[in-house]
Structures are given as structure tokens and as C-alpha cells.
């Protein structure tokens, strides 16, 4: 499974959606992912890719991890994989 497919699968599971209903341009809000689901998603991503994601729930937007859309999360994970390989 590609990085993109894995991340979409993680987010789809949190959002209780089919992976085909998760688009790259969707925001987490679009998908109905709240703050607790987000923290669970970050954990699942860290476990799936064996990376550490810089993320502080006190201010998600200020973290060095762009969570504005599904696509931005995929790009950020790709960058972290390269950085932490």
C-alpha cells in the first residue's frame, strides 16, 4: 500500500467513511475528524510509518506538521519519512 493509501485508510477509519470518500482536498473538518480523532490519527500514522510526528494538541495549527488537508498530511508524512529514515 502506498503512503497515500495508508494515510487515507487511517483517516477513513477515524471518520467512519469508505476510503473512496476521502479526497486529497478534504480538510479534517470536512471529514468530521475532531480533536480526539486527530490525536488518534497522528498516533496511527506514527505507528504505520515508524516516524515521530511533531504535534501539540494545544495548538495544532502551530505544529510543524501541516494538517490543513488530506493532501498536506500525505506530503508532511513523506517529508518526515525522508527526514527520519
Amino acid at each position: 500500500m502506498s503512503t497515500q493509501d495508508k494515510i487515507i485508510a487511517i483517516l477513513a477509519e477515524q471518520a467512519l467513511l469508505a476510503p473512496s470518500d476521502v479526497g486529497l482536498d478534504n480538510s479534517l473538518e470536512d471529514l468530521g475528524i475532531d480533536s480526539m480523532s486527530l490525536v488518534e490519527s497522528i498516533f496511527a500514522i506514527e505507528e504505520a510509518f515508524d516516524i515521530t510526528v511533531p504535534f501539540n494538541a494545544n495548538d495544532p495549527k502551530q505544529s510543524d506538521f501541516d494538517i490543513s488537508t488530506v493532501g498536506s498530511i500525505i506530503a508532511a508524512v513523506d517529508a518526515l519519512k525522508a527526514e527520519q529514515a
Binding site: 490525536v39 497522528i42 498516533f43 504535534f55 501539540n56 494538541a57 494545544n58
Partner: peptide
């Protein structure tokens, strides 16, 4: 470790 998981620690 348990508290870390919540991502609310400074």
C-alpha cells in the same frame, strides 16, 4: 508515557 500520548504536555 501515558500522558505523552494525549499530546497536551509542554
Amino acid at each position: 508515557k501515558a500522558w505523552e500520548g494525549l499530546r497536551v504536555m509542554s
